[in-house]
Design a protein around this nucleic acid. Sequence first.
RNA 1: GGGUGAUUAGCUCAGUUGGUUAGAGCGCAUCCCUGAUAAGGAUGAGGUCGGUGGUUCGACUCCACUAUCACCCA
Length: 1049
Amino acid sequence: MFDKVEKNPDFAKLELKVLEKWEQNDIMKRSMEQHRGADKFTFYEGPPTANGMPHPGHVLTRVMKDVFLRYRSMRGFDVLRKAGWDTHGLPVEIAVEKELGIDGKADIEKFGVAEFIAKCRESVFKYEKEWRKMTERVGFWVDLDDPYVTCQNNYIESVWWILKRYWDEGLLYKGHKVVPQCPSCETAQSSHEIAQGYREVEDPSVFVRMRVKGSPDTSFLVWTTTPWTLISNVAIALGAGLDYAKVKYKDEYLILAEGRLPAVFGEENYEVAERYKGADLEGTEYEPLYTFCAPEKKAHYAILGDFVTIEDGTGIVHIAPAFGEDDYQVGIKFDLPFLQPVDTKGRFTSEVTPWAGLFVKDADAGIIEELRERGILYRSEGYVHTYPFCWRCHSPIVYYARHSWFIRTTAYKDTMLEVNDSINWIPEHIRKGRMGDFLENNIDWAVSRDRYWGTPLNLWICEADESHVLSVDSAADLKAHALDYPDGELDLHRPYVDAIHCKCPQCGARMSRTPEVIDCWLDSGAMPVAQWHYPHENKDVFDSLFPADFITEAIDQTRGWFYSLMAISSFLFKKSPFKSCLVLGHVLAEDGSKMSKHLGNYLDMDVVFDRFGADAFRWVFYRDNNPWLPTRFSERALEEAHKNFFLTLWNIYSFFVIYANIDEFEPAEHEVGADALDASDRWALSRLNSAVALIKENMDAFQVTPAARAIEALVDDISNWYVRRCRPRFWKSEKDDDKWAAYSTLREILVTISKLLAPFAPFTAEVIYSNLARDTKRDKAEDSVHLAAFPEPDSSLINAGLEEAMEFVRDLCNEGRSLRNKKQVKVRQPLQRIFIRLKEGKLRDGIAPLKDMLTDELNIRDIAFIDSFDDLMCVSLKPNYKKLGPKYGKDLKAIEEYFKTLEDHAGACPSYFNDGRLDVEIGGSKFEFVEGDLEQVKTPSPDYLVGETVALDMRLTPELIRAGRARELVHKIQNLRKEMDLDYAARINIAYSCGPDLNEIFGDPALAEYIMKETLAVSLDCLLQDADADAARFDIDGVACGVKLSVSN
RNA sequence: GGGUGAUUAGCUCAGUUGGUUAGAGCGCAUCCCUGAUAAGGAUGAGGUCGGUGGUUCGACUCCACUAUCACCCA
């Protein structure tokens, strides 16, 4: 016996029970341990941060990880599911600042760094409980009890080891990074801070002359909106392919982009003297504007840059590497000097004598005036643009180069490109697109942060000579060099690590740590090694689990985690840290907008879990849309998944259990041989195994959506064809091999579907499997579907010809139904014959074993195969207007009418068909028609309904009519049973009364037996009194009829 | 401003290397079936495949431009 199945289950409740079962039986651990030592399928968890609430987007990544891990696990791979948490970084600090009601680095120092760090550590796991709850509820199996955590000492030591490797290779260096800086708060701002402070303002814009060296009457005309940066000018940039002109203007020559001439000169007179491409001018030197700072390298010449446009200005861009990101990169590329006569408060330093101590933007007016006096200024005007301001104090932001530590990723860019080529990106366009493009334009990785809560940079600088630098790779290494290492274990965070001083290995002087912490992306990118405390421990573990076979995260990680993983592993191991990467699109709100806490435009996850369950939640992500596309997430999608897929599957399951229990079907006891299977069983098993092959193939290629859709299509076919067609086999009274074949087949299908479904909808699959799985010759029942093996396609059961024939039969049924539908002939009315026109003969043999399905489905007695439907058509005649018009003129109307009303053209006008001549009398006049006067038109005979491939014989014999009425009666009586809420198996007595035409039905022994059998009646008698008020009265083809049912004891 | 992706029925999506009449599901309308029954099935309506231009005997498909949306980066 199988457990009774609820008709309309609460999936959420079932899932909670499944969770309990997993917990009690330790299923997750057992599934992980089951294949220990087998081939590994290695997965790396991209660490989420647990200092924010999870939302549906996080569910997507978690279930996408889960489906492949479960799949590989069932395929027999050894799958390790180590969780991880990303814990460091600015967002954590900001959240703590907010919580403490403090703001900025000064406040943090005042509050106390040690106390602040403690708060950060605490806050990191603020939402760990919610994350754990979501993770467990959604069925993501990951080992949350043994995660890697980026802020633990062991982890930091591994990161230090990586940094030391970079240092030893000479790839870690100190440089400058241009950052937006608030001159008043004296801190750099992050991009999201900048984004909220843009305002439209008017700034001065100036056109200045840069005089070409050696030709005092010729100048480059340069435009800028930040006159104060001209003091630090070291070069000018031109577009290589842009057109430039030297124009004569008054008594001098000016060089600028030809396309800007009208905009710059307007109505004024000028003459083009010479034309160049930007490339022709490369290297041209010019006189420096200022000499406050002496450049230590070659400067003041024209270079080429692809960022130069002719949209505004003069097509010549002034370059000051200290004050712009583009400028800085150009400076690196051309090895230009770096002039920064500005302090961190945005004031000119003492060497800029006229404006020393003045805030740079306040110096603009004076600078312009001075340039005018020297005749350098060509023009100055106001320029309206958006400019960032500090969101705290509203001071104008200044772009400013700060000291920063860099990893020279550009040194091994080619390795990264090779690594990128070796990765199986899904979708593929990431390789050449987003990631490839990013790598091609790779710049050195700025890894240091002037903050507190992060992995401290492991560099100690000699106080006697700052070129003496010590890099350590572990606490022990540090201790070995330290002068003041404390007893016991040291927390490797600031401020504790700042307090350690070392002895310089080169000169013996004291060394102090450089104060920076590092970018938390370096933490997460280090996880392949750091999660194992490699190389300090677990070398063999690491070796066996590198690289990962598979990772998946959302697309924003392209430049985040995917990059940091690749950058680090390309350096350390010269190979990719992962083989396949599924890049997920974002989850959007129902209207296609971004989900945001602020707008509250997404469904509460607990509500989703309670109303639809985790499986529906998961299914929507797998089935609706390929995972790399943005997915709109809506209640409607969940409802559709629930109704369309889960309820359909549940109906099959419930149907099976109801009847299997009635018949006391026992899988092991009632196993049947292959010869007991009928055509529909063989079809269903073939269909099943074809689906298994397809699903496996897709899952192996990380194509989750085609796989999910294949399951859905399979379930639909089983429900709406196999079960639908086989119902009578289940409810017939004989317990013969045919019945057991049907039960065995359907159970086998359901158990296999539960295994196929297990990676996708682990809860529903578990419920079905737990109830239906039994030890049989073919299969063994496990404690959980997740301990079972993923189905293998059995090619001996796949019969492509049968599947094709069945497909054809289903098409024929549809066409037959369509024909009946058009003529409003109910299926209840049996018809004598169906004609099937076969274009090719091969299907005839294929459908032979399936023909009962066709006749039964369409309620038709016989099948006839014919080559052509011509015999089912009548040929009628129609006037050829073109010929008859001139011949008969206005009589044509009468002729037209005559042929229209003529019923049997062939019978009435044989001579025309035989030799093309016809004489008729119409309305008293005689007409003569010769060949071509009449057109032959084929129309279906009224006796047939003719379609493309199918035709139906519509002629009804009295016998067919009686049969139709009998079936109509059965239908009515079944409805009465339903209305009376009778048990499926209840036997009834039928009392009827009826008019004469119906008497012959009740009186016909065969029909009466048919009615009794179908309605489970034990008696059928003409006992009903006309006056009986309890009887049901209806009308069969216009004849009154009364019926009364009573339950038989 | 640059890059990437998307745009096909009212909604959510398919559409293989270019090839007859562009397909599903939901919703809608009509009908059917009814011992899976608060289910199920069929039929139908609904499309200038975002727009413009090009290549081709032929374009949803290839190319160019363009519009809108999203993401990433400046």
